[in-house]
Write a protein that binds this DNA or RNA. Sequence first.
RNA 1: GGUCCUAUCGACUAGCGGUUAGGUCAUCACCCUUUCAAGGUGAGAACACGGGUUCGAAUCCCGUUAGGACUACCA
Length: 532
Amino acid sequence: MLALKLATRSSAKSPASASCITQSPRGSSKNMTLITAPTTTATGSDVRVRFCPSPTGTPHVGLIRTALFNWAYARRTGGKFIFRIEDTDASRDSEESYGQLVEGLRWLGIDWDEGIDTGGPNEPYRQSERGHIYQDVIEKLKSSGHLYESFLTGEEIEQRNIANSRAVQLGYDNSERDLSEEDRQAYLSEGRKPALRLRVPDQDITFVDLVRGEITFPAGSFPDFVLVRPGGAPLYTLVNPVDDALMGVTHVLRGEDLLSSTPRQIALYNALVEAGVATFIPRFGHLPFVMGEGNKKLSKRNPESNLFLHRDRGFIPEGLLNYLALLGWSISADRDIFSLDELCENFEIENVNPNPARFDQKKADAINAAHIRLLTDEDFVARILPYLQSAGVIQGQPTARQLEILSAVAPLTKERVIVLGDVPAMIEFLFVDAADLKIDEDALKQLPENAVEIVSVAKASLESIEDFTTDAIHQALSDSLVDGLGEKPRNAFGPVRTAISGRRVTPPLFECMEILGKEQSLARLEAFVQSR
RNA sequence: GGUCCUAUCGACUAGCGGUUAGGUCAUCACCCUUUCAAGGUGAGAACACGGGUUCGAAUCCCGUUAGGACUACCA
């Protein structure tokens, strides 16, 4: 025990510890291998990060946050961002989901330097098309002695543990590391086919996590694990690190759920280096979970996990990404709103907070609203158009008059929505004829007794106006309703608003009347009086 | 069972040995106001617990407690 501590300490002090992997051999297995491969020292433009989702289901905001941080890290360092698809599980993967992943990243503006569609020096970027590559790597690992055949079934492994009074949960006992040739032949003659396991070094494995600092897994924390199925099909445990190695990935930024498998991957990387497949071990950084209600990881069942639901509601990429970045990272002590450029300029993986963060829809909404207000009027119009079209407010391409209305109402509307999906209901009345205007229940409910009187006085006072402008309208209505009838502004303008828009909440009333024009406005007031 | 991670207002966080513990969302109050927003001002609200190290601990160390992850011939 003392010797172990000394070993760890001295190795930490030695100059050789520029490598992040600390070695402290323990025990004395005949086949003991040690981790000797160097950890990458890549910085700046040598940085290579990747996003490698499995195409199962619709894109999840937690997944997007991972993509965002990898992307931001690449943009910050000047390195490369690789987009790879891990579609080796035909039963769960779907082409539809693959398409959604690509669509999602494109919509958000997260672009990649190598990968799907874009191509690059390490094609193909879909694992389902890389089968031949893995077979070659498996051969190299076999001939360098890092893999060994394992014939025991799960049931047999459990039996052995019971027989040896070893905890069943401990799993495999590495008992076939030195299988004799006779035993091997005996298994083969039974018609068994072996899985291939990695000979894991009997030593503590330490690495410096980019968000959590130094982490040590004691020797024996996990058994020799399977890399290849009986029959030769490679597993995720093999293909993920192999692809990273082949693609030269230097920094692996991924979810916290993979933290425990990192020592396994370091052991594999070491084997890969010794087998001549890789030249270094990457650095790892484990991002905190995105949580949902209670203390549970945000699951695909939670609607707020679905990227496209946010888009459909009217989140804009700037808002959603800003909020997602806030889940574990902050730009400064007193600022929450920032652009993607600012994120890329300031992102430091070392500043990511290791605690899990809860997804808060209210705050996400507030951040999105702030970004909508930052849009120029032209940009705002362009972005709300699809929402107006799908709500049926505008059919097909907008007319010149509709465009005119939109640009007039844009600055008024921008200030009072939290998502773009709020817009159609708010401005629909500007696009219908007086005869077709419907009056909402909640607008009617709060009308004063003398609503009809107010509206007809309003109409009379507006008829004489020459210039039908906001100021003139305001003046005329104030004179006739507030001064003339002695109504409070609230009581005076409420009925007019309802008659004009049919709604309780609208952009500012006088501006809306100016946009509608004198004829339309008066027609609506008249229609209201007639219908009561 | 084993291994690992985590712990600051209701939520997200700033803090990296000396702060009246700061900001944002949410909540409440007031101001502004033609509705709704936006904006302005203000209030309440946190260092999980126990030891240690130190002149001094939210900050470093240990333990406890509480969450969480992993422990597949899934990815």
